[in-house]
């Protein structure tokens, strides 16, 4: 179980999360959606402890985890931007992470799934973007963690790797793991997500399954529904700015 209670986070006074509460109890795929800069990555990093919330609490497996570290044994994380120490070889990286975690990971199966065999002796700095993403995926899944956080997992993947990833996520779901992913590809959401969490302006606008989303917006399919939500928000903003403009004019007249 992962639970966030009333999380606030601002970077240098710029608020990003403004009171986010979330509960993910059952195993399954939770898709965190939202426009660019809405705080999806920040939310994941709060769970992971890479970003410290200004207020609020994070529970993983029932335990409060802020400023703790050992709970990360149960978390696999795929960062949005893959960053590695460049002077290592791919196989050295896998070995090093196992050593540092003190867990014996199983990378062979994953290496095969993503067709990384021939890259094992390559330096990380010489890999293509998609290949780096695959290496990243291996690290994320190799410890068979109970909680899996995937920040834009599909970015840079070719269709073959995409299918392999989907299959992998499907298997993890069957095993009862909690998988949280962010993506901008609605097709992925429609095919995989059990629950959708829509984040905007630092708050959770919607949490529920796809049927509930369709019902709420009166549209069909995630893409159309999300577009509806965004449009509504946009319209609301325009209305208020028009009102402001109007008021401004009135003021001028009064002057």
């Amino acid at each position: 179980m992962i639970e966030l209670k009333n999380i606030y986070k601002a970077y240098k006074k710029v608020p990003v999360l403004k009171g986010v509460s979330l509960k993910m109890e059952k195993g399954g795929v939770y898709a965190v959606l939202g426009p660019n800069g809405s705080g999806k990555t920040t939310l994941m990093k709060c769970i992971l402890g890479m970003v410290l919330p200004d207020r609020g609490e994070v529970f993983v497996g029932g335990e409060s985890v802020i400023k703790k570290h050992s709970y990360r044994e149960n978390i696999g994380y795929l960062p949005q931007i893959a960053r590695f120490p460049d002077n290592l070889k791919v196989e050295e990286l896998f070995k090093m992470i196992s050593d540092l975690r003190g867990q014996k990971g199983n990378s062979e199966d994953l290496i095969q799934r993503f067709g990384l065999e021939k890259y094992l002796s390559y330096k990380l700095s010489s890999l293509s973007g998609g290949t780096r993403q695959k290496v990243n995926l291996v690290i994320c899944f190799m410890f068979d963690a109970q909680y899996i956080l995937l920040d834009e997992p599909t970015s840079g993947l070719d269709p073959v790797a995409m299918i392999a990833l989907r299959k992998l996520i499907e298997e993890k779901k069957q095993e009862g793991k909690i998988i949280i992913l962010t993506t901008h590809i609605m097709d992925v959401v429609e095919k995989m997500a059990d629950e959708i969490i829509f984040l905007m302006e630092g708050k959770i606008y919607f949490q529920g399954d796809q049927e509930k989303l369709d019902e709420l917006t009166g549209s069909e399919g995630v893409e159309a529904s999300i577009a509806q939500l965004l449009l509504k928000e946009e319209k609301g903003k325009n209305d208020s700015s028009q009102k402001n403009g109007f008021r401004f004019k009135l003021n001028k007249v009064a002057l």
């Binding site: 992971l48 570290h69 990360r72 044994e73 994380y77 960062p79 540092l100």
Partner: peptide, 16 residues
Amino acid sequence: NSRDFIELLLAQPIKR
């Protein structure tokens, strides 16, 4: 130079 390595480590079960 080791910022990348540090970020990788921060996601592991290791004390800061």
